[in-house]
Design a protein around this nucleic acid. Sequence first.
DNA 1: CAAATAGTGTCTTTTAGACATTATTAA
DNA 2: TTAATAATGTCTAAAAGACACTATTTG
Lengths: 246, 246
Amino acid sequence: MENNYVSHLSVDNVIFGYHGKEIRVLLLRLRNNTHWMLPGGFIKNTESILDAAKRVAQERTGLTNLYLEQFKSYGNKNRTKDSNFIPLDNNPLQFDNNTSLRINESYFASISFYTLTEFSKVEISKGEFDAEAKWFSLEEIPTLLFDHNQILKDALVALRLHVNHFPIGKQLLEEKFTIPEIQALYETILGKTLDRRNFSKKIINSGILNKLDEIKKIGAHRSPNLYNFNEEKYLEALKNGLILFV
Amino acid sequence: MENNYVSHLSVDNVIFGYHGKEIRVLLLRLRNNTHWMLPGGFIKNTESILDAAKRVAQERTGLTNLYLEQFKSYGNKNRTKDSNFIPLDNNPLQFDNNTSLRINESYFASISFYTLTEFSKVEISKGEFDAEAKWFSLEEIPTLLFDHNQILKDALVALRLHVNHFPIGKQLLEEKFTIPEIQALYETILGKTLDRRNFSKKIINSGILNKLDEIKKIGAHRSPNLYNFNEEKYLEALKNGLILFV
DNA sequence: CAAATAGTGTCTTTTAGACATTATTAA
DNA sequence: TTAATAATGTCTAAAAGACACTATTTG
């Protein structure tokens, strides 16, 4: 065993955050660097790829309990060569004593994951070697290091494809939520508006919601009814698929 | 550069073959081994992952021009430990002079691809270290080495998901084909029968076919009309998706 | 009562799905 | 003429999509 990490291999996480009617992406800026990047890291040779992705998310962003979904791997000779990348003197990517600045290895493959979380409810905490961690809206994504812009683009496609096939919301909405709230979630992710009446019909007919005997006070407006997810139906839809919007 | 191949990393190809009304998978048996495996190999540190997958397919099966689709990566400490695997004395997986029996490395990640081809029209030729290369029907898949049964299972799910979203046939049918032929293709891949009349309507309404002024002689039966793909519409459907069957 | 938002029903169009008869070919 | 296969149209049910009015809340 040469060291504790698997060489030539990393995981990168595209962490999408949802709140209000906005979707954002969590990016990091390494110390001394002007350019931003996806939170990524190496794989220990004792853990699975998925475990590595979870650990890396935790170490670099503080986020836990993410439902990471693998979508693609990237690899070619020069993908981690980038003149904008400024390595730190003291090996910023050194995660243990046996590991040197791995990113200078001649070949680097990244196994990439995406996830979707509620960004106002989670507290991000930058990792040891990061100068900054920040949520960016999709419109303000800067030029990222390496091929991370491409990875992010592919992740968004994968996310939207996923939403067309499976229910979402459990990790994104409050325990109890209103129909307008879950509609806003779908609209935000899909990037388009949906008819209120038709949305209602569909989501209610799908059976994944329980109508509660409660309303939510929203100020000087009619109070909307509260719903929660029908656990059983929701899990079933996760397994077998649920097509709400084509 | 330590050697010509990227350590800890391999590609595995799930090569589905279609012919008649059957779908098969191309498996290899390494010399001295009783168990079968997916055709896989290592990545040169000068090539992209996709290029590696193509080259590996060519070297180990003789197949070229495959449209390989990446679907998942697999990695954890013990995935290439398998008591059924019998390494050859003379390093069967040694692809060049600088590479040793890489599969004994402590950690191995596989980036997996699937493809679909016409198995009666392609000639397979086993690689240097393989005792046998053979098409297996899905019902007769034996216990494979490592986690290859799982990879194969996931590949089939990915393939069927793909077929639900995009047109297929260009690499699988003759240049000119009949409606019953393309229907058999869809039925085989989806693993279910489809109503002839409804299939006709859908595929023709989709616009991806050109009706030719020719028929195909099929013996003592009514001769079916021939069609080919409308290049433009087919490409557009590849880009934007085409949902024929949910 | 004004302003904001929630809730809901109907109509039309489109799509999906079930289903049976006629046409062609060659032995 | 028979056996095999191709081609095709109609009806019904379900789903998608467009669309507008009423209800509630608080200032």
